[in-house]
Protein backbone atom coordinates (compact mmCIF):
# COMPACT_ATOMS: atom_id res chain seq x y z
CA UNK A 1 0.00 0.00 0.00
CA UNK A 2 1.24 3.47 -0.87
CA UNK A 3 0.68 6.16 1.73
CA UNK A 4 1.90 9.52 2.90
CA UNK A 5 2.52 11.73 -0.12
CA UNK A 6 3.65 15.07 1.22
CA UNK A 7 4.88 18.14 -0.60
CA UNK A 8 6.75 20.89 1.11
CA UNK A 9 6.76 23.41 -1.72
CA UNK A 10 4.28 24.26 -4.45
CA UNK A 11 7.09 23.79 -6.96
CA UNK A 12 7.54 20.14 -6.00
CA UNK A 13 3.83 19.55 -6.42
CA UNK A 14 3.83 21.21 -9.84
CA UNK A 15 6.42 18.76 -11.15
CA UNK A 16 5.78 16.49 -14.12
CA UNK A 17 5.57 13.34 -12.00
CA UNK A 18 5.19 14.58 -8.43
CA UNK A 19 5.50 11.12 -6.85
CA UNK A 20 8.95 9.48 -6.76
CA UNK A 21 7.55 5.97 -7.37
CA UNK A 22 5.96 7.19 -10.62
CA UNK A 23 9.34 8.52 -11.80
CA UNK A 24 10.95 5.12 -11.15
CA UNK A 25 8.20 3.34 -13.07
CA UNK A 26 8.50 5.76 -15.99
CA UNK A 27 12.24 5.09 -16.10
CA UNK A 28 11.76 1.30 -16.11
CA UNK A 29 9.15 1.65 -18.85
CA UNK A 30 11.47 3.84 -20.91
CA UNK A 31 14.35 1.36 -20.57
CA UNK A 32 12.14 -1.57 -21.60
CA UNK A 33 10.78 0.35 -24.58
CA UNK A 34 14.08 1.73 -25.85
CA UNK A 35 15.79 -1.65 -25.61
CA UNK A 36 13.01 -3.30 -27.62
CA UNK A 37 15.00 -3.34 -30.91
CA UNK A 38 17.60 -5.47 -29.10
CA UNK A 39 15.22 -8.26 -28.15
CA UNK A 40 11.96 -7.78 -30.12
CA UNK A 41 11.08 -9.90 -33.17
CA UNK A 42 10.56 -8.39 -36.63
CA UNK A 43 6.79 -8.47 -36.47
CA UNK A 44 6.67 -6.96 -32.99
CA UNK A 45 9.09 -4.26 -34.04
CA UNK A 46 7.18 -3.30 -37.18
CA UNK A 47 3.95 -3.10 -35.24
CA UNK A 48 5.61 -1.08 -32.49
CA UNK A 49 6.86 1.43 -35.05
CA UNK A 50 3.36 1.87 -36.45
CA UNK A 51 1.96 2.23 -32.94
CA UNK A 52 4.55 4.95 -32.27
CA UNK A 53 3.43 6.93 -35.30
CA UNK A 54 -0.20 6.53 -34.22
CA UNK A 55 0.72 7.69 -30.72
CA UNK A 56 2.17 10.93 -32.11
CA UNK A 57 -0.93 11.57 -34.21
CA UNK A 58 -3.32 10.67 -31.37
CA UNK A 59 -1.50 12.98 -28.96
CA UNK A 60 -2.25 15.78 -31.39
CA UNK A 61 -5.91 15.00 -31.93
CA UNK A 62 -6.33 14.61 -28.20
CA UNK A 63 -5.31 18.25 -27.78
CA UNK A 64 -7.72 19.51 -30.44
CA UNK A 65 -10.64 17.20 -29.70
CA UNK A 66 -9.98 15.72 -26.26
CA UNK A 67 -8.84 18.84 -24.43
CA UNK A 68 -10.45 21.63 -26.39
CA UNK A 69 -13.56 19.79 -27.55
CA UNK A 70 -13.18 20.70 -31.23
CA UNK A 71 -14.13 17.67 -33.31
CA UNK A 72 -11.85 17.25 -36.30
CA UNK A 73 -12.31 14.75 -39.12
CA UNK A 74 -9.40 16.07 -41.14
CA UNK A 75 -6.69 14.67 -38.88
CA UNK A 76 -5.91 11.80 -41.27
CA UNK A 77 -5.49 14.28 -44.12
CA UNK A 78 -3.15 16.36 -41.93
CA UNK A 79 -0.85 13.33 -41.78
CA UNK A 80 -0.85 13.43 -45.56
CA UNK A 81 0.20 17.08 -45.57
CA UNK A 82 3.12 16.23 -43.27
CA UNK A 83 4.08 13.17 -45.26
CA UNK A 84 4.16 14.96 -48.63
CA UNK A 85 6.01 17.93 -47.14
CA UNK A 86 8.71 15.58 -45.90
CA UNK A 87 8.77 13.78 -49.27
CA UNK A 88 9.21 17.06 -51.12
CA UNK A 89 11.90 18.36 -48.75
CA UNK A 90 13.77 15.04 -48.55
CA UNK A 91 14.02 14.87 -52.34
CA UNK A 92 15.74 18.26 -52.15
CA UNK A 93 18.27 16.97 -49.66
CA UNK A 94 16.82 18.61 -46.57
CA UNK A 95 17.86 16.58 -43.49
CA UNK A 96 15.11 14.97 -41.40
CA UNK A 97 15.72 17.13 -38.34
CA UNK A 98 14.73 20.14 -40.43
CA UNK A 99 12.12 18.41 -42.58
CA UNK A 100 10.08 16.97 -39.69
CA UNK A 101 9.59 20.27 -37.81
CA UNK A 102 8.96 22.01 -41.13
CA UNK A 103 6.28 19.42 -41.96
CA UNK A 104 4.77 20.02 -38.53
CA UNK A 105 4.74 23.79 -39.00
CA UNK A 106 3.24 23.73 -42.48
CA UNK A 107 0.55 21.31 -41.30
CA UNK A 108 -0.10 23.58 -38.30
CA UNK A 109 -0.66 26.45 -40.72
CA UNK A 110 -3.17 24.38 -42.67
CA UNK A 111 -4.70 23.32 -39.36
CA UNK A 112 -5.35 26.97 -38.53
CA UNK A 113 -7.17 27.47 -41.84
CA UNK A 114 -9.23 24.29 -41.36
CA UNK A 115 -9.96 25.37 -37.77
CA UNK A 116 -11.38 28.76 -38.77
CA UNK A 117 -14.99 27.50 -38.83
CA UNK A 118 -14.62 26.50 -35.17
CA UNK A 119 -15.02 30.17 -34.27
CA UNK A 120 -18.56 30.00 -35.57
CA UNK A 121 -19.77 26.42 -35.31
CA UNK A 122 -19.48 23.56 -32.84
CA UNK A 123 -20.11 19.83 -32.58
CA UNK A 124 -21.62 18.14 -35.61
CA UNK A 125 -21.36 21.27 -37.77
CA UNK A 126 -17.66 21.54 -37.07
CA UNK A 127 -17.28 17.83 -37.85
CA UNK A 128 -18.88 18.46 -41.25
CA UNK A 129 -16.71 21.52 -41.94
CA UNK A 130 -13.55 19.53 -41.18
CA UNK A 131 -14.91 16.65 -43.27
CA UNK A 132 -15.09 19.04 -46.20
CA UNK A 133 -11.49 20.04 -45.53
CA UNK A 134 -10.55 16.38 -45.54
CA UNK A 135 -12.00 15.89 -49.02
CA UNK A 136 -10.33 19.01 -50.38
CA UNK A 137 -6.95 17.90 -49.03
CA UNK A 138 -7.23 14.33 -50.33
CA UNK A 139 -8.30 15.73 -53.70
CA UNK A 140 -5.08 17.74 -53.77
CA UNK A 141 -3.08 14.63 -52.80
CA UNK A 142 -4.49 12.76 -55.81
CA UNK A 143 -4.17 15.59 -58.32
CA UNK A 144 -0.99 17.51 -57.50
CA UNK A 145 1.36 15.09 -59.28
CA UNK A 146 4.41 17.35 -59.04
CA UNK A 147 4.53 17.01 -55.26
CA UNK A 148 2.52 13.94 -54.34
CA UNK A 149 3.13 11.77 -57.38
CA UNK A 150 -0.63 11.56 -57.88
CA UNK A 151 -2.48 8.29 -57.44
CA UNK A 152 0.58 6.05 -58.14
CA UNK A 153 2.31 7.72 -55.20
CA UNK A 154 5.78 8.97 -54.44
CA UNK A 155 8.90 7.73 -52.71
CA UNK A 156 10.54 9.30 -49.69
CA UNK A 157 14.33 9.11 -49.31
CA UNK A 158 15.32 7.66 -45.93
CA UNK A 159 16.20 9.92 -43.05
CA UNK A 160 19.90 10.03 -42.35
CA UNK A 161 22.39 11.79 -40.14
CA UNK A 162 26.03 11.72 -41.21
CA UNK A 163 26.66 8.21 -42.50
CA UNK A 164 23.86 6.72 -40.42
CA UNK A 165 20.70 6.01 -42.40
CA UNK A 166 17.40 5.24 -40.69
CA UNK A 167 16.65 2.22 -42.83
CA UNK A 168 14.80 -0.78 -41.49
CA UNK A 169 12.45 -1.01 -38.53
CA UNK A 170 15.18 -1.15 -35.88
CA UNK A 171 16.61 2.21 -36.82
CA UNK A 172 13.28 3.88 -37.59
CA UNK A 173 12.14 2.73 -34.18
CA UNK A 174 14.49 5.19 -32.52
CA UNK A 175 13.49 8.02 -34.82
CA UNK A 176 9.80 7.39 -34.16
CA UNK A 177 10.02 6.87 -30.42
CA UNK A 178 12.46 9.75 -29.99
CA UNK A 179 9.82 12.03 -31.51
CA UNK A 180 6.95 10.33 -29.67
CA UNK A 181 8.71 10.71 -26.34
CA UNK A 182 9.51 14.42 -26.85
CA UNK A 183 6.02 15.20 -28.12
CA UNK A 184 4.35 13.28 -25.28
CA UNK A 185 6.35 15.28 -22.74
CA UNK A 186 5.44 18.48 -24.58
CA UNK A 187 1.74 17.57 -24.41
CA UNK A 188 2.01 16.85 -20.68
CA UNK A 189 3.83 20.12 -20.11
CA UNK A 190 1.22 22.07 -22.01
CA UNK A 191 -1.53 20.51 -19.90
CA UNK A 192 -0.01 21.85 -16.68
CA UNK A 193 0.30 25.44 -17.89
CA UNK A 194 -2.29 28.16 -18.33
CA UNK A 195 -2.52 27.34 -22.04
CA UNK A 196 -3.59 23.75 -21.36
CA UNK A 197 -6.07 24.86 -18.72
CA UNK A 198 -7.58 27.34 -21.17
CA UNK A 199 -8.15 24.50 -23.67
CA UNK A 200 -10.23 22.55 -21.15
CA UNK A 201 -12.02 25.73 -20.07
CA UNK A 202 -13.06 26.39 -23.67
CA UNK A 203 -14.30 22.82 -23.99
CA UNK A 204 -16.27 22.83 -20.71
CA UNK A 205 -17.75 26.34 -20.74
CA UNK A 206 -16.61 28.74 -23.37
CA UNK A 207 -18.55 31.70 -21.98
CA UNK A 208 -16.99 31.59 -18.55
CA UNK A 209 -13.59 31.01 -20.13
CA UNK A 210 -14.03 34.24 -22.06
CA UNK A 211 -14.96 36.13 -18.90
CA UNK A 212 -11.65 35.01 -17.39
CA UNK A 213 -9.79 36.62 -20.26
CA UNK A 214 -9.38 33.57 -22.49
CA UNK A 215 -9.33 34.71 -26.09
CA UNK A 216 -11.58 32.14 -27.77
CA UNK A 217 -10.35 32.90 -31.27
CA UNK A 218 -6.71 32.53 -30.36
CA UNK A 219 -7.23 29.49 -28.14
CA UNK A 220 -9.28 27.48 -30.63
CA UNK A 221 -6.89 28.17 -33.47
CA UNK A 222 -3.97 27.30 -31.20
CA UNK A 223 -5.61 23.96 -30.40
CA UNK A 224 -6.09 23.23 -34.08
CA UNK A 225 -2.54 24.30 -34.90
CA UNK A 226 -0.96 22.12 -32.21
CA UNK A 227 -3.07 19.10 -33.14
CA UNK A 228 -2.13 19.55 -36.80
CA UNK A 229 1.54 20.00 -35.90
CA UNK A 230 1.56 16.58 -34.24
CA UNK A 231 -0.25 15.09 -37.24
CA UNK A 232 2.29 16.66 -39.59
CA UNK A 233 5.21 15.16 -37.69
CA UNK A 234 3.42 11.78 -37.55
CA UNK A 235 2.89 11.97 -41.31
CA UNK A 236 6.56 12.75 -41.85
CA UNK A 237 7.60 9.79 -39.69
CA UNK A 238 5.20 7.63 -41.67
CA UNK A 239 6.93 8.69 -44.88
CA UNK A 240 10.40 7.91 -43.55
CA UNK A 241 9.16 4.59 -42.18
CA UNK A 242 7.46 3.30 -45.34
CA UNK A 243 9.78 4.99 -47.85
CA UNK A 244 6.88 5.30 -50.30
CA UNK A 245 3.32 6.51 -49.98
CA UNK A 246 0.11 6.71 -52.05
CA UNK A 247 -2.88 9.00 -51.38
CA UNK A 248 -4.88 5.89 -50.54
CA UNK A 249 -3.31 5.81 -47.12
CA UNK A 250 -4.99 9.08 -46.06
CA UNK A 251 -8.60 8.00 -46.32
CA UNK A 252 -11.39 9.10 -44.00
CA UNK A 253 -11.02 5.86 -42.05
CA UNK A 254 -7.69 7.14 -40.78
CA UNK A 255 -9.37 10.20 -39.25
CA UNK A 256 -12.04 8.00 -37.71
CA UNK A 257 -9.30 5.72 -36.42
CA UNK A 258 -7.70 8.62 -34.51
CA UNK A 259 -11.04 9.83 -33.21
CA UNK A 260 -11.67 6.31 -31.94
CA UNK A 261 -8.21 6.19 -30.35
CA UNK A 262 -8.90 9.45 -28.50
CA UNK A 263 -12.29 8.29 -27.25
CA UNK A 264 -11.22 4.75 -26.39
CA UNK A 265 -8.02 5.91 -24.71
CA UNK A 266 -9.51 8.79 -22.76
CA UNK A 267 -10.28 12.39 -23.63
CA UNK A 268 -7.65 14.93 -22.73
CA UNK A 269 -4.88 12.83 -21.20
CA UNK A 270 -1.49 11.82 -22.57
CA UNK A 271 -1.86 8.36 -21.04
CA UNK A 272 -5.19 8.06 -22.86
CA UNK A 273 -3.56 8.91 -26.20
CA UNK A 274 -0.93 6.23 -25.69
CA UNK A 275 -3.36 3.56 -24.53
CA UNK A 276 -5.85 4.47 -27.25
CA UNK A 277 -3.27 4.31 -30.04
CA UNK A 278 -1.95 0.96 -28.80
CA UNK A 279 -5.41 -0.51 -28.35
CA UNK A 280 -6.77 0.70 -31.69
CA UNK A 281 -3.76 -0.68 -33.56
CA UNK A 282 -3.91 -4.08 -31.96
CA UNK A 283 -7.66 -4.69 -32.00
CA UNK A 284 -8.00 -4.81 -35.81
CA UNK A 285 -4.68 -6.65 -35.95
CA UNK A 286 -5.88 -9.28 -33.47
CA UNK A 287 -9.10 -9.53 -35.44
CA UNK A 288 -7.15 -10.04 -38.66
CA UNK A 289 -4.94 -12.71 -37.11
CA UNK A 290 -7.97 -14.50 -35.69
CA UNK A 291 -9.74 -14.42 -39.05
CA UNK A 292 -6.63 -15.65 -40.87
CA UNK A 293 -6.21 -18.48 -38.40
CA UNK A 294 -9.81 -19.54 -38.77
CA UNK A 295 -9.81 -19.27 -42.58
CA UNK A 296 -8.47 -22.83 -42.76
CA UNK A 297 -11.64 -24.17 -41.30
CA UNK A 298 -14.21 -21.50 -42.20
CA UNK A 299 -13.14 -19.78 -45.45
CA UNK A 300 -16.54 -18.17 -46.00
CA UNK A 301 -16.53 -16.60 -42.53
CA UNK A 302 -13.15 -15.05 -43.23
CA UNK A 303 -14.40 -13.44 -46.44
CA UNK A 304 -17.29 -11.99 -44.49
CA UNK A 305 -15.30 -10.76 -41.50
CA UNK A 306 -12.28 -9.17 -43.13
CA UNK A 307 -14.02 -5.97 -44.25
CA UNK A 308 -15.41 -5.64 -40.73
CA UNK A 309 -12.23 -3.97 -39.47
CA UNK A 310 -13.73 -0.52 -40.01
CA UNK A 311 -16.99 -1.43 -38.38
CA UNK A 312 -14.97 -2.34 -35.31
CA UNK A 313 -13.75 1.28 -34.97
CA UNK A 314 -17.32 2.50 -34.99
CA UNK A 315 -18.43 -0.14 -32.54
CA UNK A 316 -15.58 0.66 -30.14
CA UNK A 317 -16.42 4.38 -30.23
CA UNK A 318 -20.02 3.65 -29.33
CA UNK A 319 -19.20 1.09 -26.64
CA UNK A 320 -16.76 3.42 -24.92
CA UNK A 321 -18.96 6.51 -25.21
CA UNK A 322 -21.78 4.58 -23.54
CA UNK A 323 -19.94 2.53 -20.93
CA UNK A 324 -16.68 4.33 -20.18
CA UNK A 325 -16.65 7.90 -21.53
CA UNK A 326 -13.33 8.52 -19.82
CA UNK A 327 -11.72 5.66 -21.68
CA UNK A 328 -8.97 3.22 -20.90
CA UNK A 329 -7.08 5.88 -18.91
CA UNK A 330 -9.92 5.93 -16.35
CA UNK A 331 -9.98 2.13 -16.20
CA UNK A 332 -6.23 2.18 -15.65
CA UNK A 333 -6.46 4.70 -12.82
CA UNK A 334 -9.08 2.54 -11.09
CA UNK A 335 -6.82 -0.49 -11.40
CA UNK A 336 -3.93 1.54 -10.04
CA UNK A 337 -5.92 2.63 -7.02
CA UNK A 338 -6.77 -0.96 -6.22
CA UNK A 339 -3.08 -1.90 -6.48
CA UNK A 340 -1.99 1.01 -4.29
CA UNK A 341 -4.52 0.22 -1.61
CA UNK A 342 -3.73 -3.47 -1.62
CA UNK A 343 -4.34 -5.44 0.60
CA UNK A 344 -7.24 -3.17 1.53
CA UNK A 345 -10.32 -2.82 -0.60
CA UNK A 346 -12.47 0.22 -1.18
Amino acid sequence: MRTGICHETFASEERLWPVAATRVWMLILAICLFSLPLWGGDYVLAMTCIVGIHIVATLGLNITTGNTGLISLSHGAFLGVGCYTVAWLAHRGVPFYVALPAAGLLTALIGVVVGLPSLRVKGVYLAIATLAAHFILTFVFREWDAVTGGVPGTTIPRASIGNFTFVGDRRNFYLIYGCAFLLAIAARNLARTYIGRAFVAVRDRDISAEILGVNLLQTKLQAFAIGAFYAGVAGGLLGYFYGAITPEYFVLTLSVFYLAAVIVGGLGTVLGSVLGAVFMTFVPEALRLAVNASSHWFPSVAALLLPMGQAVFGLLIIVFLVFEPHGLAAIWSRVRRVIHLWPFRT
Binding site: L190, Y194, I195, G196, D204, R205, L212, I226
Partner: peptide
Protein backbone atom coordinates in the same frame (compact mmCIF):
# COMPACT_ATOMS: atom_id res chain seq x y z
CA UNK B 1 -20.39 27.95 -14.52
CA UNK B 2 -17.34 26.01 -13.36
CA UNK B 3 -15.17 23.80 -15.55
CA UNK B 4 -16.09 20.23 -14.70
CA UNK B 5 -13.08 18.67 -16.37
CA UNK B 6 -10.73 20.48 -13.98
CA UNK B 7 -9.95 20.35 -10.27
CA UNK B 8 -10.88 23.10 -7.83
CA UNK B 9 -7.31 24.39 -7.91
CA UNK B 10 -7.16 24.42 -11.71
CA UNK B 11 -10.49 26.23 -11.87
CA UNK B 12 -9.20 28.90 -9.52
CA UNK B 13 -5.89 29.17 -11.36
CA UNK B 14 -7.83 30.03 -14.50
CA UNK B 15 -8.76 33.24 -12.73
CA UNK B 16 -5.11 34.25 -13.14
CA UNK B 17 -5.16 33.43 -16.84
CA UNK B 18 -5.03 37.04 -18.00
CA UNK B 19 -1.80 37.68 -16.10
CA UNK B 20 0.10 34.80 -17.72
CA UNK B 21 2.70 35.52 -20.37
CA UNK B 22 4.57 32.31 -21.28
CA UNK B 23 4.77 31.59 -25.01
CA UNK B 24 3.50 28.37 -26.56
CA UNK B 25 6.96 26.94 -27.17
CA UNK B 26 8.15 27.86 -23.72
CA UNK B 27 5.07 26.14 -22.24
CA UNK B 28 5.67 22.96 -24.25
CA UNK B 29 9.23 22.61 -22.95
CA UNK B 30 8.15 23.92 -19.52
Amino acid sequence: ALFHGLSVLENIKLGGHHTMRAGLLSAMVY
